[in-house]
Write a protein that binds this DNA or RNA. Structure first.
Lengths: 145, 145
DNA sequence: GTGAGTGCAAACGCTTTGCATTCAT
DNA sequence: ATGAATGCAAAGCGTTTGCACTCAC
């Protein structure tokens, strides 16, 4: 994707900051939040501010470059896969993975039941990832209260 | 439900504050957040503090008296219907309604795809409720940016 | 009487905003 | 040269916490 062109098409200026954010998080499959993006930028782009990351991600979301996840977590996470899909988060290590669900079917169901015109379908799961399941034996769960 | 008994069974003391919260939000179908609960308590129970509402709702969630919703919104909302179900929020008036979805099927799907042991399934929708759809004609959408 | 619960205010984490400065156009 | 974008610090929001006081048991 030519991010510069997409920005221009949408009336946004092409700045080093925006290119830097795109460069760092494009093809990133870890579903980072703003803080993570900021930290990842630090070594190569120490001039970046966290506020700019937020502002940039807001624009990226608006022009469809990323989607914002609802992960049953406090901080937003961003996904460069903008195809609608669901996510599952490991409550132990916070790793997030994609899940494909039939969103259209769910939307139809909701529309039929409630009469709402459905605009967005958000599906998320939490669980324990395969890796953490392996480590679980004899190991106390860090997340226990 | 005998909330006093449930509290005692779980080792929590029965206080006027906890009874007041339960009285006000039990059978409440508006999926209120902490602030809304606080405000609803004010006239009848002006002694209540917001912090206590939070603390009480946390306990209620822990002992299964309420469930906490993820509504693609900033503030938590609470639901006294603890049967697992999904929600749809109107982006115009913020009204929230219940939706029944086959969560088990979704959980199986996620488990198969990712290998995670699925602990929770969260489904939420946004849309425009029937009422707001009616009002929509010739009326600018308040939520438009 | 004792420990749990309360209320206040302060702190918190994530996010947004105001504003002077800088930069893309 | 002009308006948009940046960076900083401060404010904002919903939420949690520390602590002295109060109350259910």
């Amino acid at each position: 994707m030519d991010i510069a062109a997409v920005l221009r098409e949408n009336g946004y200026k092409v700045t080093p900051q925006r290119l830097a954010v795109y460069e760092v998080v494009n093809n990133n499959t870890t579903h980072p939040n703003a803080e993570a993006i900021y930290k990842e930028l630090q070594p190569k782009y120490p001039f970046m501010s966290l506020a700019t990351v937020y502002k940039t991600m807001e624009i990226f979301a608006k022009i469809g470059v990323v989607q914002v996840l609802q992960c049953e977590e406090d901080a937003h996470r961003y996904d460069f896969n903008t195809k609608p899909h669901a996510h599952i988060r490991c409550t132990r290590c916070n790793r997030v993975m994609d899940v494909d669900v039939e969103r259209d079917k769910l939307a139809d169901l909701a529309q039929t039941q409630t009469g709402y015109r459905v605009d967005s379908v958000n599906v998320s799961f939490t669980g324990i990832c395969a890796e953490c399941q392996n480590e679980e034996t004899g190991c106390q769960n860090e997340k226990e209260n």
